[in-house]
C-alpha cells in the first residue's frame, strides 16, 4: 500500500516538478533598519530555479549574496516581494513554520562545516531527523543516516568524530546531513572556503554527482574557479542581479582532479 502510494506521489511530483520551479523569487527585497540609515541589502531580485539545476550565486562582499542566501534558506524573511519554495509562500510563514520548511525542504552546507563536536558522524547526520515533524523511528534514522554517509563516500567512517576527520571528510558529513531529510534543495554557503584546492575539487565532484542524480543545488561562492563546476551562474552587485547565464566550458571534477595530479607529478619530477 505504502509502496503504491509512494509511486503515485513520485509520478505526480515528476509531472509537477517539471513544470514548476523549486525556487521562485518575485521582486524580493531586504532592508535593514539600523539606526538612522536604511540598508538595502537586496533590492528587488526576481529569479526562478528549476529542479535539477546547479546554480552558483556570486558576488563580492556587500553584493547581498549572504542576505539572499539567508532568505532562500528560510532563515530570514524578505521585507518585500514574495518567495515560493516548492510552491509554498515562505515570505508569510512564522518562526515555527520556517523551522519546519528548513527541516523538510532545505539541506544546508556551511563554509565552516558546522558539525557538532564530540558527536559521531552518524549522529551528526541523524540530527535533522530528530526535528522532523513526522516522527522517524530511531532504527530508521540510523539506516538513513548510514545510507546518506555512503552516498558521500564516508560509510566506513560513520563512528568517527569530527576531530578525527579531515576537512574534506567533515564537509562530506555536512553534505550527508543536508541530504538526510530528502530536501528539495541543497543550499551551500562557500562550501570550499575552508578547503585546499584538491579537496575543493573533490567536494565539487560530490556536488556534481548529486546533481547528476537530480538534486537541485544552489551554491554561494566568490571564487570563479569553484563556480565553473556549476551549470548556471548568477552574479549579484549592489543587491541586484548583474548577470544570469549558463556556464560555458563547465569544469568536470574528475578531469580537474586528474589534471591536478599530473601537475603535481610534473612539479615533483622537475624538482
Amino acid at each position: 500500500m505504502a509502496g503504491v502510494s509512494r509511486a503515485v506521489v513520485d509520478l505526480i511530483l515528476k509531472y509537477f516538478v517539471q513544470t514548476n520551479p523549486v525556487i521562485k523569487l518575485d521582486a524580493i527585497q531586504k532592508t535593514y533598519h539600523t539606526g538612522e540609515v536604511d540598508v538595502h541589502a537586496v533590492r528587488g531580485i526576481t529569479l526562478n530555479i528549476f529542479p535539477g539545476e546547479f546554480v552558483a550565486i556570486m558576488g563580492s562582499s556587500g553584493s547581498g549574496k549572504s542576505t539572499l542566501m539567508n532568505m532562500i534558506g528560510a532563515l530570514d524573511r524578505p521585507t518585500g516581494g514574495h518567495y515560493w519554495l516548492d510552491g509554498i509562500d515562505v515570505s508569510t510563514l512564522d518562526r515555527d513554520a520556517l523551522a519546519d520548511v528548513r527541516n523538510e525542504k532545505i539541506g544546508f552546507v556551511f563554509q565552516g562545516f558546522n558539525l557538532l563536536s564530540r558527536t559521531s558522524a552518524l549522529e551528526n547526520v541523524e540530527m535533522p531527523m530528530q526535528y522532523n515533524r513526522q516522527r522517524i523511528h530511531s532504527h530508521e534514522q540510523r539506516t538513513r543516516a548510514q545510507q546518506s554517509l555512503e552516498l558521500v563516500g564516508l560509510g566506513p567512517r560513520a563512528d568517527h568524530h569530527p576531530n578525527q576527520l579531515s576537512g574534506g571528510q567533515q564537509q562530506r558529513v555536512a553534505i550527508a546531513r543536508a541530504l538526510v531529510n530528502k530536501p528539495s534543495l541543497l543550499l551551500a554557503d562557500e562550501p570550499t572556503g575552508n578547503l585546499d584546492s584538491q579537496t575543493s575539487i573533490e567536494i565539487m565532484g560530490v556536488f556534481q554527482k548529486l546533481n547528476d542524480q537530480g538534486i537541485t543545488i544552489i551554491m554561494v561562492t566568490h571564487e570563479l574557479d569553484v563556480a565553473r563546476f556549476t551549470k548556471r551562474m548568477v552574479i549579484l552587485r549592489d543587491g541586484k542581479i548583474l548577470t544570469d547565464e549558463a556556464v560555458q566550458n563547465r569544469s568536470v571534477a574528475d578531469k580537474e582532479l586528474q589534471r591536478l595530479r599530473q601537475e603535481q607529478q610534473a612539479v615533483k619530477l622537475a624538482s
Binding site: G73, L75, R95, D96, A99, D100, R102, N103, E104, F108, N114, L115, L116, M127, P128, Y131, N132, R177, N181
Partner: peptide, 16 residues
C-alpha cells in the same frame, strides 16, 4: 550558541 544555530538551521523549533 553555535550548536543552537546549527540545530535551528536544520529545523529545530524554538520549543525544541
Amino acid at each position: 550558541t553555535r550548536e543552537i544555530g546549527i540545530r535551528m538551521a536544520v529545523g529545530a523549533r524554538a520549543a525544541d
